[in-house]
């Protein structure tokens, strides 16, 4: 229950920060900004989905985490870590070729890591863990 609430608080904080950044920016809103905003909304939606799952488990009197969910999280973490390394390699390769500011590239990398984590979690969680 406590962890589910923490997930909701974090999601709200991220949304507020993004909202402040998006609406207070004096510069013209570009396609990249809108794309980043969309991806952040997707990542937040994923976090809220996890929060709701935990909350509904708690309401049914089940543990928020059990051996399967812990295993899924462990496997997701390791897999997304390896894929993220390749993401950073690709970003390093293209960083000279693309004319983006450094903080934009780092932001895109961090956002990419979050997206990779979400995709890995979806694949492992719904695909199951067999013969391990």
């Amino acid at each position: 229950m406590k962890r589910a609430v923490i997930v909701f608080i974090l999601a709200a904080l991220v949304l507020i920060s993004v909202g402040v950044w998006f609406f207070s920016s004096s510069a013209k809103v570009t396609t990249v900004d809108i794309l980043s905003f969309g991806i952040i909304i997707l990542v937040v939606a994923f976090a809220v989905f996890i929060g709701f799952k935990r909350l509904s488990s708690a309401k049914r009197g089940e543990p928020a985490e059990d051996e399967l969910s812990k295993k899924v999280m462990r496997k997701t973490s390791s897999l997304s870590y390896y894929i993220s390394l390749y993401l950073w390699l690709v970003i390093m390769y293209f960083s000279d070729k693309l004319k983006f500011e450094t903080h934009t590239i780092i932001g895109a990398g961090i956002l990419g890591m979050a997206v990779i984590f979400a995709i890995c979690w979806l694949i492992i969680n719904f695909g199951g863990i067999r013969n391990e």
């Binding site: 089940e62 543990p63 059990d66």
Partner: peptide
Amino acid sequence: KKVDVRRETIVFLEKNKYN
């Protein structure tokens, strides 16, 4: 509830998606 896991775990076990 009896074995203190989430319902999802039982679903995965029955589908042979988890050992």
